[in-house]
Design a protein around this nucleic acid. Structure first.
Length: 583
RNA sequence: GCACCCGUAGCUCAAUUGGAUAGAGCGCAUGGCUACGAACCAUGAGGUUGGGGGUUCGAGUCCCUCCGGGUGCGCCA
């Protein structure tokens, strides 16, 4: 019997069966299987300890009773008992070989992984910039982390809807339209539309500040827009279209393609229902002229209101966010929604989710699982939010160009003999991947310091280290005149050297890394894994020559190389990075 | 004032959510290219996990309390 894709779940199942025979299952036994330190084994089960503690039994005796009922695993694992009651599992070389033979492509890895969330539907709300403004460094993390999360969820079998919840209905449009009508430079609009919109907005803003007549005129433009004035709507539409086209240039570099772009304007006609239902349900109340929701049971939200309608009657982002949840539940019928948004909006989202829960309860609806995927700030090397020297936001477009340029200098220094076009192509991938990876590799909850040297110096836990490992595998096949798509692995013997075994066992842990990253919505777990895998490969590469005369040895080493390639490339795809064959 | 997040090696960060001797990378020291890519590998030094108390078989992780940093708190999103 061959091992399934996810070995940890396989062990979990067997342990539950054994515990069931002992009558432990209905008393809350949890196997707690996890990847183990190599000194102990490949996987370990800790569940006997917690269970014995609760039941006031001897954990070691308990663990032994479980082990005695794991006979079915004896073919694939060496099973041991250690310490106060840890159960250790070490894969036998033949089992490692069998797993490697079975999972031979990204498709088959995905088939294995896709059981976890088959039938689920998730919507991921990420990027979500404001229109009429350029994307800046503050938009980087949501886009990069959000895309990785989409890919992880999809890989795990979920149907994923990528939603760009753009800010396309702000009060800024009054001043912008006022200026647009009077000061538009058509040539600038054609060349760099967002530059032109920003110039116009500043112009309108300054004029309104200096002259109250202009301010009034701008406010009237906004009212006209909101009342459906055809001319203003056309301008508004043009601004949004141009903005989205400019955003897409960034998204193309980051490998992002949205399924839907449903911004705030989309929910304009859907907020009245929110007001009605919240009021009818007794959840919302008038306060200082506004419609607000309090949460008496909450230490802070009992006094900090959730303002769902402003005193002037207008909606705000609380109203549209509530309407958005309803739309996602009714129209998309999602099981879950992930909001990839800055940690500074934690209060807003907590109030939003709390309000939605009560609202859905009152109205008898099923609330999707709502997750705030928060992340910290991108800091400069002075530990302050990253800015240009004159205190402006750093534009994403410029940041990505600089990444490509820096990578180009490096590639040129390393490989001056390569053709210009090839160096450019490599640099485009390495540069952007470095930025993405630097963001993903760190636990999203904390701030991170943006340091060019660290991310493109190509050492340590960086994109380049992973890409280098990929390039070296390709190189082995290329030099040996073999087709990497048809690796000659027939007759491969089981992993035998220390480096081979360490690499093989690391490969089998891919499933666990994906599951951990997906369930916690934290891509850095996958990054850590891929870095460790690339490290095991480098060690193996240095220790054991692949192209040797002895056929079974050569075949098994080619097998390891090929599977390393498949897992690394699959992992890079999951993070939203593009692999390359040479660098 | 109230609330939330953070504090781990000189630096940047992990630690599978309470598990085994707290691990990586950078930097530092030493060694390795006539071996498939040295953008690499091997070995080594480096820690009172901000301080103190508590919970238990077991705490970087949970609770309390100080210290230090960040963020949010009625009509921007």
């Amino acid at each position: 019997m061959s091992l399934p894709f996810n070995i940890a779940s396989h062990l979990d199942t067997s342990l539950r069966a054994a515990a069931g025979q002992l009558g432990m299952l209905d008393r809350g036994f949890e196997p707690e299987v996890r990847v183990a330190d190599p000194t102990h084994g490949d996987f370990q089960a800790n569940g006997a300890l917690a269970f014995a503690k609760r039941e006031k039994q001897n954990p070691r005796v308990l663990a032994q009773q479980i082990v005695d009922r794991l006979g079915g695993l004896a073919g694939d694992f060496e099973i041991g008992l250690a310490g106060p009651g840890f159960i250790n599992f070490r894969l036998k070389p033949a089992a490692l070989l069998a797993w490697l033979l079975a999972y031979d492509s990204e498709t088959h890895l995905q088939t294995g992984a896709a059981r976890a969330r088959a039938g689920q539907k998730w919507i991921v709300d990420y990027s979500s910039p404001n229109t009429a403004k350029q994307m800046h460094v503050g938009h980087l993390r949501s886009a990069v982390i959000g895309e990785a999360i989409c890919r992880l969820l999809a890989f795990s079998g979920a149907h994923v809807v990528r939603d760009n919840h753009i800010g396309d209905w702000g009060t800024q449009f009054g001043k912008l339209i006022w200026a647009y009508k009077r000061h538009l430079d058509p040539a600038a609009l054609a060349a760099e539309p967002l530059e032109e919109f920003e110039r116009l907005y500043k112009l309108g803003n300054n004029a309104a500040a200096a002259d109250s007549a202009v301010l009034t005129a701008a406010q009237q433009e906004l009212v006209r827009l909101q009342n459906g004035d055809a001319g203003n709507l056309a301008i508004w539409q043009k601004i949004n279209d141009a903005s989205l086209a400019a955003f897409q240039q960034i998204y193309d570099q980051l490998g992002i393609k949205f399924d839907v772009t449903l911004g705030e304007s989309f929910y304009n006609d859907k907020v009245d229902r929110v007001y009605r239902e919240l009021t009818a349900g007794g959840l919302a109340q008038e306060s200082e002229g506004a419609l607000v929701v309090f949460h008496p049971e909450h230490p802070r939200f009992k006094t900090q209101p959730f303002i769902v309608r402003k005193k002037d009657g207008a909606s705000n982002y609380a109203s549209t966010d509530l309407a958005t949840i309803l739309y996602r539940a009714e129209h998309f019928q999602v099981d879950g929604a992930a909001y990839v948004i800055d940690f500074r909006q934690s209060d807003h989202l907590a109030q939003l989710f709390l309000t939605a829960r009560k609202w859905f309860e009152k109205t008898g609806r099923k609330l999707p699982q709502l997750e705030h995927v928060d992340f910290g700030t991108v800091l400069g090397e002075n530990n302050k939010p990253l800015q240009t020297r004159d205190g402006e936001h750093i534009r994403l477009k410029a940041l990505l160009s600089e990444a490509r340029e820096r990578a180009y200098s490096l590639v040129t220094a390393r490989s001056p003999e390569a053709p210009e076009a090839e160096r450019r192509a490599i640099a485009d991938i390495v540069g952007v991947a470095s930025v993405q990876y630097a963001d993903l590799a760190q636990n999203r909850s904390s701030d991170y310091v943006f340091a060019w040297d660290k991310m493109i110096s190509l050492e340590g836990n960086t994109a380049a280290y992973l890409l280098y490992a990929v390039a070296r595998v390709h190189s082995i096949f290329r030099k040996a005149g073999m087709d990497v798509l048809q690796p000659p692995i027939a007759g491969a013997s089981a992993p035998a050297t220390a480096a081979e075994i360490n690499l093989a066992r690391k490969l089998t842990q891919f499933a666990d890394a994906v599951q951990l990253a997906t369930n916690s919505l934290r891509p850095h777990y996958l990054c850590t894994y891929l870095h460790e895998l690339a490290g095991e490969f480098s060690t193996f590469y240095g220790a054991d020559k692949v192209i040797v005369d002895e056929a079974p040895v050569r075949a098994r080493r080619l097998l390891l190389c090929h599977r390393t390639l498949v897992v690394l490339e699959t992992g890079l795809h999951l993070l939203g990075l593009r692999p390359l064959e040479r660098m």
